[in-house]
């Protein structure tokens, strides 16, 4: 048991234990400062790690939110896409049965290009205007006998049918006399109607029933010297129906001839046309009726 002659092991252990246990030593302040600094550093590292995790979670949530918004937006856009597809399918419909020139017809090289000689927004003199108007209106006159009128002193009147002058004179008492062209659209079917009978408003046969309307074609300048030619395609309406709003001006930029216009017309023809048809008996009759009656009286 004893390893040496002088010591018992237990005495040695007890001597060290009693000498060193429960004793205190002064601690230098630098140790405490280092402890605090190290503890703060470790806490900062933990906070940074937690911050990184939170950033990752936030980024993940943001990505999920963006994805959800993307799909929601995609679902809300899908009805418009359906409208486009409907327009694309109806574009394959047969040509205009009335033979009136449309924007779609202007695609073919055989047909005269109404807009070919008139750059967008171009201002021309009266003399040049006559030639441009002749060139632009001629196909429409041949096809659907539209009324294209201008101011009484305009040379444009020479190219118009006689009923256009009558229409211009008859509309002097109306509110639109100051406007250059107020002659309403006259349908070929209306001419063929027997006297005394009134054409009831009916649904349009097709959205292709477009004729040239001169209502807003001549935009006279304030000085009266120049005029801007803005031919407008109007949907062909039956007599007595409320005049339709112009679908699209030809002076508007066109990328594909007639394509954009037809895409825009298609939902319009399905919804607004029918609405006007149903509301037509309730609305006040436009000047077209008076012109028609005057024409009949003149006849």
């Amino acid at each position: 048991m004893n390893t040496t002659n002088n010591f018992d092991d237990n005495e040695l252990d007890e001597a060290f234990r009693s000498a060193l246990d429960d004793r205190r030593m002064p601690v230098p302040p630098a140790v405490w400062a280092n402890v605090r600094a190290t503890a703060l550093e470790k806490q900062l590292i933990k906070t940074r790690i937690l911050n990184n995790w939170l950033r990752g979670a936030t980024a993940l949530l943001a990505a999920c939110l963006a994805l959800a918004l993307y799909f929601l937006g995609k679902q809300s856009v899908s009805p418009a896409t359906d409208g486009k597809s409907m327009a694309a399918t109806t574009k394959q419909q047969p040509a205009n049965p009335t033979g009136a020139p449309t924007n779609a017809d202007s695609d073919s090289p055989d047909k005269p290009q109404i807009r070919a000689g008139l750059p967008l927004g171009m201002t021309v003199d009266r003399g040049q205007l006559t030639a441009i108007e002749k060139r632009a209106v001629q196909p429409a006159q041949e096809a659907a006998s539209p009324t294209l009128t201008g101011r009484p002193d305009s040379k444009l009147a020479e190219t118009l049918p006689a009923q256009a002058d009558e229409a211009a004179e008859s509309s002097n008492d109306s509110e639109r006399t100051a406007e250059p062209a107020l002659a309403p659209t006259k349908n070929r079917a209306e001419d063929e109607m027997p006297e005394g009978s009134e054409m009831l408003p009916t649904a349009p046969e097709s959205e292709n029933n477009l004729i040239i309307n001169s209502q807003s074609e001549l935009m006279h300048q304030p000085d009266g010297s120049n005029a801007t030619y803005q031919p407008v395609l109007m949907p062909q309406t039956p007599a007595g129906a409320y005049p339709m709003a112009p679908i699209r001006s030809l002076n508007e930029p066109q990328t594909g001839a007639g394509q954009l216009q037809r895409t825009a017309v298609q939902p319009y023809s399905w919804s607004v046309f029918r609405m006007f048809d149903y509301l037509a008996p309730l609305l006040p009759k436009p000047a077209t009726k008076r012109v028609h009656k005057k024409n009949k009286a003149g006849n």
């Binding site: 002659n5 002088n6 005495e11 001597a15 000498a19």
Partner: peptide
Amino acid sequence: FTDDDQPFRAEEITAQIAFDDML
């Protein structure tokens, strides 16, 4: 180790040797 006939006790050690020396 040296042989010694006189053993040391714990109290003697702690009384004679300083804390720092033992440490």
